[in-house]
Design a protein around this nucleic acid. Structure first.
Lengths: 224, 224
DNA sequence: TCGTTGTAGTAGCTTTACTATCATAATAAA
DNA sequence: TTTATTATGATAGTAAAGCTACTACAACGA
C-alpha cells in the first residue's frame, strides 16, 4: 500500500528524496501544517526550519525552492486520489458507476487514514483547495510541464475523461469537462467558505455532498 | 462612455486614484504590460518605477502593494465586461439570447478599443487568464471580501445567474454553474496554451469560438 | 586508519517590500 | 504677490525573503 502511495514523482521534483530520511519526512509533514496555517505566500523555508529545529540550508538540500515543494505535495495528493479511484473502480463494469465513484472520492472530505507517515490527507486537501492552482499559474508552466511535473493531474483527468467517453464516445469535450469539474470541485468549496455569493453550496450542511450533486448532474447532463 | 468605464471601485482599492494624474495613468498602463511580460510573482514596484522613470515611493503613493494593484486591474476588467454585457443585452427579451450575448463577450478575444487611456483590454484579458485567481487565493480573502474588493466579479456572476433563473427558475445551482463557467472560460484558454492534455480546445483554430461552444452547451444542458 | 560520501549547520549576499525624510516644482488660495 | 497645499522625486534605511558558498562532522568501506 505504502509503495503504491509513493507517487510516481518525476525525479527532478526534489533534489533529494524526502521519503528516505527523518529530516525529509519532517519537512513534508510540517510543511503541510505550516502552509495550511499561514498560506503559501507567507510560507518560507526559514519559518519551516525553525519549526522543525533545522536550518534553511538543510531544507534546500531536499527542495530547490518552496514552489517545488508545493508541487511535490500537490502531486502526492493527486496520485493518492488516483490510486484510490483505481482501487474503487477496479471491479465496476458500468462507466457511470466508475464516474460516480471517482467523483465521490474527489469531492469527499478527506480523512486522515495515516497511509503515509506524517502526511495528513485532510490538511493536504485544504492545501489543494487553496493553493493548487498556483502550481501552474506561473511563467514556468511550460518548462515545468516538459519536466513532467503535472503528469499526475493530467493522468487523473484523462482517467475520468475516459469514463466519459465510455458513456458517450461522441462527446466532444471530455477533457475540458473533467478539468473544469476537477477545478470546480475545490473552487466551489473555497467559494462556499469565503465568497458565498459565487456559489449555491452552503458552508454548513453537507457541503461536500451538495458539491457532488452539482458536479454529477453537470457532467451527466453535459454528455447526454 | 468613459465615465461608465470608470469602474465602481471600492474606495480603498487604491490609496490615491490613479485615473486623475499622468503618473497614475502611467502606473496603470505600464503595470499591465509589465505583469503580462514577467508575471505577477516577478513583478515589483521597483521594476515598474524604473520603467516609467519614477520611483518606488511614488508608486506606493497610489497603491498599498502590488496585490492591490492587481485587484484594481482585475476589477477594472470585470466591470468593463459587465458594462458591455449590460449594453449588449439591453434590448434582448429572450434570456437565452442574453445568456448567449454575455457568454460571447466573456469568451471572445478582447480587442483594444481604446476606451480608456492607455488600458489595453487585450493584455488585461491575458492577465485575467494567468493571474486573476491570485486575487482571492490568499489568506486575506475574507478581509478583502468585507472591503468589497470582489463586488464586481460577484455582480457579474449574479447578473448571468439571473439569466439562468429566467430560463429555468427551478435550477438549483445558478451561481455555482456560472462561477464555474467564468473560471473555466479563462482556465480552458490557459490549458489550451500550456497544458493541452487538460482540454479539447486546440490552440490554433478559433480557440475562443470552441470555448464558447463548450461553455454554452455545458450551461444549456445543465439547466434543461 | 584513511579517505570518501552523506548530511547538516554558519554565515553571508542580493532582492523584495516597505517606510521615512527632505527637496522642489506646480498649483491654488489669501 | 505671497503663502499654503499638493504632487513628485531623490535618498536612505529596515526587515525579511530567497538563495549560495563554505565548513564541520559522522558513518562507512577499503
Amino acid at each position: 500500500m505504502i509503495a503504491q502511495l509513493q507517487p510516481a514523482l518525476s525525479e527532478s521534483l526534489f533534489v533529494k528524496n524526502p521519503q528516505i530520511s527523518e529530516l525529509g519526512e519532517k519537512i513534508i509533514s510540517e510543511s503541510i501544517h505550516l502552509i495550511d496555517e499561514i498560506g503559501f505566500e507567507a510560507f518560507t523555508f526559514k519559518k519551516l526550519s525553525t519549526r522543525i529545529n533545522s536550518t534553511e540550508a538543510s531544507i534546500y538540500r531536499y527542495f530547490e525552492n518552496k514552489h517545488r515543494l508545493l508541487l511535490y505535495l500537490i502531486t502526492w495528493y493527486w496520485s493518492y486520489i488516483e490510486y484510490r479511484i483505481n482501487f474503487e473502480t477496479h471491479n465496476l463494469p458500468d462507466p457511470v458507476e466508475k464516474l460516480k465513484a471517482a467523483l465521490r472520492i474527489i469531492t469527499a472530505l478527506q480523512e486522515d487514514d495515516h497511509n503515509f507517515k506524517g502526511v495528513s490527507e485532510k490538511l493536504l486537501q485544504r492545501i489543494v483547495i487553496a493553493e493548487s492552482d498556483k502550481t501552474y499559474l506561473t511563467k514556468n508552466v511550460d518548462d515545468d510541464n516538459k519536466e513532467g511535473f503535472f503528469r499526475g493531474y493530467k493522468s487523473l483527468c484523462n482517467t475520468i475523461a475516459n469514463y466519459v467517453l465510455e458513456i458517450n464516445p461522441a462527446y466532444e469535450f471530455p477533457n475540458s469537462l473533467i478539468s473544469t469539474c476537477l477545478e470546480a470541485a475545490h473552487q466551489q468549496i473555497f467559494f462556499a467558505e469565503h465568497l458565498p455569493a459565487l456559489s449555491n453550496i452552503k458552508k454548513e450542511k453537507d457541503m461536500h455532498e451538495t458539491n457532488y450533486d452539482f458536479l454529477f448532474s453537470l457532467i451527466t447532463k453535459a454528455i447526454k
